[in-house]
Every structure is written in C-alpha cells, then in structure tokens.
Nucleic acid binder design. Structure first.
Lengths: 138, 138
DNA sequence: TTGCGTGCAAAGGTTTTGCATGGCA
DNA sequence: TGCCATGCAAAACCTTTGCACGCAA
C-alpha cells in the first residue's frame, strides 16, 4: 500500500464504473482499456494499470492470476460483502467467483494455524477449480 | 500432453538436475537459465521453456503462478510423493512453499465438492498467508 | 539417415516507467 | 497554486515461435 487516491477524475470514474458493471466476473486490464475505448471514453494503459494497483491495495478490487501466467484479472468487491471473512472459489472455466460462508471452511483456518503453524490470508487466497455448471458441460 | 520426450540430451539432463537440486522449493525458468549459465553449462531460453512444458505435461514438474503474475514457478515432484493429493501453503513474506500432507485438508476437497458443488484443482490452488517464522519476526 | 532437439534472434503480449502536460482541490 | 494524475512512448519482462543447424538413436 503506497500512495492513496486523492483526486477524483473522469478516468478513474470510468475505470471503476467498468469494474462495477462487471462485478459478477473478472476482467483483464486490456479488456477494461478496450471497453472504455469502445465506449468513447478512452483511458491510457498506464492510467488503468496504475489505478488498478491502487484499487487492489485499498481492497476495493481483487486481483487474480489464473490465465496461464498471461494477464492478471481484476474483480470489484462490493463493499457490503465482507469478503475478508470467507473463502472464495474461482471457476477456471467460466470465471465465476463463488463466495463461501461456511463453518467448515472457517475451521480450516484454525486447523492450519495450529497444526501447520501458518496463518492463512483470506484476501489473497482463492481455491481454484471447476464449478458444477462447467463440470457438467465438459 | 502433446509430444513425448524421445531423446536424452545433455541440456535436458542439466535442466532436470537443476530442478531436482531445488526440489524443496519452486524455481523460475529464468533462475534455471541463470543457474545453468553460471554453472558453465548454458542452455538456451527456448530449450528451457520447451522442456519445462514437456515435464509439466508429463506430470514430472508442477507449474505455479504465484509471483504476482510475473513469472511462472516450477517445482520437481518426486515420483513417490504424490503431490496431486496435497495442499500448498505459500508464505507471502519469505516466499517459502510448504507442502501439506494432511487428512483434514484432503477432507476439504470432498466437503467443497459435496456441499458447494465445486471441484478444487490442487495444481492451481495455493493457500496464501504467513508462516510461523515470518509471523514471529514481524 | 531420420527426425527430434537446440540455439539464436525476432516477435508477441503484458506491465512498468520517465517525463512533460493537464487538471483537481 | 501545489500536487497529483494522465498520456505517450519507450522500456522492461517473460514467453513463444520460425528457421537452420546439430545430434541422438
């Protein structure tokens, strides 16, 4: 967490809007850039990357690395959803992010903590795999 | 799984050796290239990447995408250790990768599968957090 | 001898950075 | 007015690919 966003600008509104419009899926930086350009409000690459970084360090947006090391994906986290406390399942196929509120998974934390001496950071941890829809289709 | 390794070459031996020497941690392609160069047995980038791909598709080496989307990490999987079955904990501070063989965590799979209808892919999943050493230091 | 493997260089793609300009507060 | 934000272009990186040559079997 380096600098903090101080100014409100048209570009930042655009970027955040785009993320919110796609809050039910993840989206790459390039997709954001393309979408804004097509929408008639182009924003430069540098600005998009710089702002995304800030949003991530502020916890407003989550960053994923799934596409074979290629490009990072970003997804807006709604403020009222308290994502710090639960686990996330991310479907590799469709990109769906599933929020899981589950006692069993919460116990996982204490298990890992006491038996493996390791403190899990939920904000950075995602269980990758395949959701039921995608499992059935393939 | 595309092509299969047919020839045994000096370069391949070097690469595999390097992976085995570092079997207790993950290592990037660039690190392998550098190590071999410094060891007096340089192997070209292309060869390293191409061979790593093969090793991965043969299941001899595992590929991770953890380092902030930058470069992929590779780690040799000893044949008798069935790494497909266990979880990985990655310390955000020191970068240590911890292999966890644990019944509790194995149960996690079936739990997630039956209760949340989601099939976890171990090869892509890493639990991020802080190991005991780093927790104590900070 | 055959055909896979290697090396080099170039290309491809994503992300970062330097620097001058623009614009919010 | 003072900074921060933006845009552009260039650079930095990692990885892939084309092609000719080398070498294992």
């Amino acid at each position: 967490m380096t600098a903090v966003t101080k100014y409100k600008t048209k570009q930042r509104d655009q970027i955040l809007d785009c993320l919110i419009r796609n809050k039910d899926r993840h989206i790459t930086a390039v997709e954001i850039i393309t979408a804004l350009k097509q929408g008639g409000n182009p924003v430069s690459k540098a600005t998009v990357y710089r702002y995304l970084d800030k949003l991530v360090s502020q916890g407003i947006v989550r960053k994923y690395f799934i596409e074979e090391g290629k490009s990072a994906c970003y997804q807006y986290i709604a403020k009222n959803e308290d994502c710090g406390e639960h686990y996330h399942l991310k479907c590799i196929e469709c990109g769906q992010l599933i929020h899981v509120e589950c006692k069993y998974l919460e116990e996982l934390d204490s298990h890992v903590k006491f038996h493996h001496d390791f403190e899990v950071d939920h904000s950075k941890t995602v269980l990758y795999g395949c959701c039921s829809n995608c499992t059935n289709e393939s």
